[in-house]
């Protein structure tokens, strides 16, 4: 069973000769198929926590375990492989490769492991269909709307059956209509994969769609729901 265990997580930054504590003793546990929204004021450390959970940043102290593995004990190469297989990212700015087609963007995580197999390609095709872009497979990101690009990002994040999907302000740049459609995909698809979903959002509405909600206040995690 996939789980997420965070215990005593601290994160400090050094800035202008002073120490800035952003997260101070964060504890968190999640199980497979759960979704969690993290809310809080700007600069509270929401994205920092997300980035640590996604191994894009490292904690000053404390432990993180994803599916029983502490990724920060892995070598850089094994960490990359771990990230590739275990974690899916959805960024506010989608970060699609402008030179690749929709299909190629979705297959990007598989390219990291070599040429995608037939099975992986079928998986990608299925995901593209599920996000409603089957007719746009060969289009470049410049030919898509903002919402469509975010849907491609969702499909990319799910390609390798990640155990943990992290979304950082996934609807931050979208209008209301696109927000709803993207939000629907965001919650439905990971749940279907039994993946854990953690999203950071300023949107109360989006936060309410999640099963659980926590807030970061004064560097600590406060459970709302």
């Amino acid at each position: 069973m996939s789980t997420l265990r965070v215990s005593g997580l601290h994160k400090q930054f050094i800035s202008a000769a002073e120490l800035l504590t952003v997260l101070d003793g964060i504890d968190l546990e999640m199980s497979a198929g759960e979704d969690l929204a993290i809310v809080g004021p700007s600069g509270s450390g929401k994205s920092t926590l997300l980035h640590i959970l996604g191994t894009l940043d490292s904690p000053t102290s404390g432990t993180v375990e994803v599916a029983g593995v502490n990724p920060f004990e892995l070598s850089p190469i094994k960490l990359a492989a771990f990230r590739n297989r275990t974690i899916g990212f959805i960024f506010q700015d989608h970060h699609l490769m402008p030179q690749l087609t929709v299909a190629e963007n979705v297959l990007l995580p598989a390219i990291a492991q070599g040429r995608p197999s037939e099975k992986v390609r079928q998986r990608a095709q299925q995901l593209i269909q599920e996000v409603g872009l089957a007719q746009r497979e060969l289009h470049l990101p410049s030919q898509l709307s903002g919402g469509e690009r975010q849907r491609v990002a969702i499909a990319r994040a799910l390609l390798n059956h990640p155990k943990l999907v992290l979304a950082d302000e996934p609807t931050g740049n979208l209008d209301a209509t696109n927000t709803q459609s993207v939000a629907r995909m965001l919650f439905d698809l990971p749940k279907r994969e039994q993946a854990m979903l953690i999203l950071v959002t300023h949107s109360d509405w989006l936060a309410e769609q999640a099963q659980r909600c926590v807030r970061i206040e004064n560097r600590h995690l406060v459970v709302i729901r």
Binding site: P76, A80, F82, R83, N84, R85, F91, M97, L108, A112
Partner: peptide
Amino acid sequence: GVLLAQGFT
């Protein structure tokens, strides 16, 4: 950054 996030070394 995206490639690193996707698991490229």
